[in-house]
Design a binder for these strands. Structure first.
Lengths: 110, 110
DNA sequence: CCGTAATATTGCAATATTACGATTGAGTGA
DNA sequence: TCACTCAATCGTAATATTGCAATATTACGG
């Protein structure tokens, strides 16, 4: 029997995994990097930039949005997608915590 | 027509996605947190801690290892798994870069 | 309104992931 | 050597993800 026993873990673990998973695909990393690079951030531009169809890009954008990594606002007849710093910061500070705890352990075993 | 056009993205994007994907499952986040908490880090302990079978845990450990997040050394007839700071740091500094670039853009659109 | 452009959604096929029981391989101690 | 334990792997089932074409939907200009 099958997949995803995800509910049996803590909220925090699930929330973190959600953000990490959103960055867990090269296409989505590429989208984030593109959004960082350009000023305007219209979806159709992204489609031109990536080797993916419009439908697929739209789906990736939805996942990024679901994870809180980006937010979109309507801008005329296009849509402006931008990175949400909060999600980035949450992941970053989590990793900082891991790093700090590792340093505290200082070579306890490996 | 199916899945995974991942090869068409840059090495860096793929490498980052690999690390992020490894953290993209609550069970693997839980494993990392457990490894942080304990001194010894034997696989069988983890099995007792998680609501997953030994086979499944072993599979998750393999993915974490494949992403470079943990490394294992043989310790008697058990195996000692430990977090590899390098992968953590790589992801962390990537996020720091994103954060910095965002600040530089300072509200260009959203 | 109608046509057009920009995104989203739907439906489907291909593939990947998650999970587990059963088995295997390796190491230990009696 | 023989049982025992630990962890990896195999085989398989259930489910999730990825990707696209086709089709909606939404918003603007005329």
């Amino acid at each position: 029997m099958g997949a995803s026993k995800a509910e049996s873990f803590s909220e925090g673990q699930q929330a973190l995994a959600l953000i990490a998973k959103a960055l867990g695909h090269p296409a989505r990393v590429a989208i984030v990097e593109y959004l960082l690079k350009v000023e305007g951030c219209i979806c159709n531009d992204i489609v031109g930039e990536l080797p993916l169809s419009q439908a697929t890009v739209s789906q990736h954008l939805r996942e990024l949005k679901g994870a809180g990594l980006i937010k979109g606002s309507i801008e005329g007849n296009a849509i402006c997608y931008c990175i949400d710093v909060k999600a980035i910061n949450r992941l970053q500070s989590y990793l900082a915590g891991v790093s700090a705890k590792l340093k505290a352990k200082k070579g306890a075993c490996c």
